[in-house]
């Protein structure tokens, strides 16, 4: 515990993440096939806010590129990253296990199943919210299923959790395969891209759906944070301290499904954000859930925004699937974490 006091470390981390988020957002808006100088990006935002400060974009198409394509994409990346990281942290808290993550245990693919079904069958019960609602419903079912199947005697052992994830992922993959088989060519193409995960084609309408869900989800999580701390003592001890464990568990599962459903509905499966970010943040500021939630939300937003910048600009004229990028980094990280957890607990417990 050498170095700075915890409170100072937290403050530095929050400030650093927030600053980095703003900087990367501006860089991301400035980058692309049509380069817009960062000063003009800021100018454009300030002008839109009614402040006549800074240079307006000089290129005729820049204004449209920023407001119709890049800004909604950036907004969606920030929201989805925040949602996934927060969902990962919530899952780890109720499972009492740092390896629980929406992508790993099959919650994301469960949500994807509902979204894909919406595409194939052309459902429109809830207008622009249909896909998100469907993703939430199947995501909720998947979360509840994983939770019910991987708990034994009030604990979730790593091996049970991972194997449950394999089983759930197998079933949802079968469901997605069936939907691709049923669907027409266009639906198939959409599902494939969506399985890879991408922020390509993000629209303000998507942001309008995701934004309220993420705000509500994160705010409720903040209210639950201190109770999640107690859960780390185990269910019985938490109850002895006056915690209604059942209610917290159900509430948290719904929250996870809500956040993952909203994220998956518009970007597809982006795995490992919920694993890597809370873990890194826990290493820096410790496991207390309130600061961890704030740090994870900021960190997840930063990670996904950065990953999307790379996905868009790494290869000229190509938009790499972002889910591929996060899995490329997250897969080995997961493996390292698994080995470390195993070494620490002296087995697969």
């Amino acid at each position: 515990m050498a170095g700075l006091a915890l409170g100072v470390r937290r403050s530095i981390l929050f400030a650093g993440l927030s600053l980095a988020l703003v900087v990367v957002a501006v860089i991301s808006a400035a980058s692309g096939q049509l380069a817009v100088p960062p000063a003009e990006v800021l100018g454009s935002i300030l002008h839109a806010m009614g402040l006549d400060i800074g240079p307006a974009p000089s290129d005729a198409n820049a204004e449209a590129a920023l407001w119709l394509i890049r800004f909604p994409r950036i907004a969606l990346a920030v929201l989805v990253g925040a949602a996934l990281a927060a969902a990962g942290m919530l899952m780890q808290a109720i499972f009492g296990n740092p390896l629980a993550e929406p992508g790993v245990v099959g919650v994301s693919s469960g949500a994807a199943l509902g979204g894909a079904a919406t595409i194939v069958f052309g459902w429109t019960f809830f207008g622009s919210w249909t896909i998100a609602v469907a993703a939430f419903v199947t995501g909720l079912a998947a979360t509840a299923l994983v939770y019910a199947m991987s708990r034994a005697n009030g604990k979730t052992e790593v091996v049970t959790l991972v194997l449950t994830g394999i089983a759930v992922n197998a079933v949802t993959s079968a469901g997605l395969a069936l939907l691709m088989f049923i669907g027409d060519t266009q639906a198939r193409e959409e599902i494939v891209f969506w399985q890879l995960g991408s922020l390509n084609g993000a629209m303000w309408a998507d942001v309008a759906v995701v934004l309220p869900v993420v705000i509500v989800g994160v705010l409720v999580s903040i209210l639950l944070a201190r109770r999640l701390d107690l859960l780390s003592l185990g269910e019985r001890s938490a109850r002895h301290l006056g915690l209604n464990v059942e209610a917290l568990r159900i509430g948290t599962i719904v929250l996870v499904a809500l956040l993952v459903g909203a994220a998956v509905a518009f970007t597809g499966i982006i795995a490992f954000v919920g694993l890597v970010i809370p873990h890194l943040m826990r290493m820096i500021i410790g496991p207390a859930h309130l600061p961890l939630l704030i740090a994870s939300t900021l960190g997840g937003a930063l990670l996904l925004l950065t990953a999307d910048l790379v996905a868009r600009t790494a290869v000229p004229f190509a938009d790499l699937p972002i889910g591929m990028l996060t899995s490329l980094v997250g897969g080995p990280f997961f493996f390292w974490l698994l080995r470390r957890t195993r070494a620490r607990s002296g087995g697969w417990a």
Binding site: G96, P98, R226, D229, L230, L231, S232, L233, G242, G286
Partner: peptide
């Protein structure tokens, strides 16, 4: 204790 809480943090949980 599931996560690396410090001794002080764990004892503080007793005040919940």
């Amino acid at each position: 204790v599931a996560f690396p809480f410090t001794v002080t943090q764990v004892v503080e949980m007793g005040r919940a």
